[in-house]
């Protein structure tokens, strides 16, 4: 190849890159399919500034891990990163039906994604989270890209952010009202059947450590949504990472009912541990064992949470008989 041509290409591209970079946020008109669905656009403000997106997007790729929220809002994504936390080639079981037509492009909690796979889907709207900021520029060259800044703990905030980007706050609010009502009902029902003041604990057991769900995952469903009581001695969660304690720390938490999440190996190790076996809840057989796939990640998903509400009472009834 002629080295001069080559140099020219490089220089032009670098310059182009710089220019595009400086004007991030301005829409790129080079979208591949410009037909009527793209005709109407609107401006949304995201973590990066203002973005012009189609008013009625048809081919949404979401790699922020919020594909379930899009479903609730009435959009089906064509590419997703809501893969199972323990096997990135599969959907988590509770999203299998919803996502079955979407391509898996990675795992939302990782910053690397199959970026060519995203482009190949020919999206008209791309949703990323701040974890994937590094590819923002390259994606926004191809299609309008919205970066959602994920809240540290508050899933409702994430939910509302997605809804506001899609300008569909009403549907979101309706779903949330319904969800809250279901949660309160489930909470009241459990309270009346299993004691008003009973306390509940949920955790992930992994490699001899106990990750306590306090303000996130299953824990926030139990406490924040259903209004169940926290046991005494709970470590408090201040950011997205779960508090990690040892068996001794677990023994300091005095819960009446326990949801133990773990892989088969981890649960086996747990039930062999003598300290675990002398916990009050364990002696009273008040433990629900749940497989880590999907229950670990399910507590972080809106649809997953709603499904958990449907079954939580049955789970508790199942052990207390």
């Amino acid at each position: 190849m002629n080295s001069n041509t080559f140099k020219k290409i490089i220089t032009t591209t670098i310059l182009a890159g710089l220019i595009v970079f400086t004007f991030t946020g301005c829409s790129s008109s080079g979208s591949p399919n410009e037909n009527d669905s793209q005709a109407e656009t609107r401006i949304v403000t995201d973590a990066k500034g203002e973005v012009e997106i189609p008013a009625n997007p048809q081919r949404i790729v979401d790699i922020s891990g919020n594909s379930d929220i899009f479903h609730i809002l009435g959009y089906e994504v064509i590419g997703t990163a809501n893969s199972d936390a323990y096997d990135y080639t599969k959907y988590p079981s509770y999203l299998e039906d919803i996502l079955k037509d979407a391509a898996i492009l990675g795992f939302s909690m990782q910053d690397t994604m199959d970026i060519e796979g995203i482009l190949a889907l020919d999206p008209d709207l791309i949703i990323i989270s701040n974890v994937q900021e590094k590819m923002y520029q390259q994606l926004s060259d191809v299609a309008p890209t919205v970066m959602i800044e994920m809240a540290q703990i508050d899933w409702i905030e994430d939910f509302k952010k997605v809804a506001s980007v899609m300008e569909n706050e009403d549907a979101a609010e309706a779903w949330l009202v319904d969800y809250r009502q279901k949660a309160t009902e489930a909470g009241e029902s459990i309270k009346s059947n299993h004691g008003e003041d009973s306390t509940y604990l949920s955790f992930l057991a992994s490699g001899g450590q106990i990750y306590i769900f306090d303000g996130a995952g299953l824990g926030s469903i139990l406490y924040d949504d259903m209004g169940l009581s926290k046991p005494a001695g709970m470590p408090e969660q201040t950011n997205i990472s779960l508090p990690v304690v040892t068996y001794e720390g677990l023994a300091s938490i005095d819960a009446d009912f326990i949801f133990a999440v773990g892989t088969p190996d981890d649960l086996a190790a747990l039930t062999e541990n003598p300290v675990w076996n002398s916990l009050e809840a364990v002696k009273n057989n008040n433990v629900v064992e749940l497989p880590a796939s999907p229950y670990f990640i399910q507590g972080y998903s809106s649809i997953g949470r709603a499904l958990f509400l449907n079954e939580v009472e049955g789970l508790i009834d199942g052990i207390s008989n």
């Binding site: 001794e248 003598p274 300290v275 002398s278």
Partner: peptide
């Protein structure tokens, strides 16, 4: 005795 605190000491610490 088989109580939680003693378990913690005996089988934990």
């Amino acid at each position: 005795e088989d109580v939680l605190d003693m378990q913690v000491v005996r089988n934990g610490r």
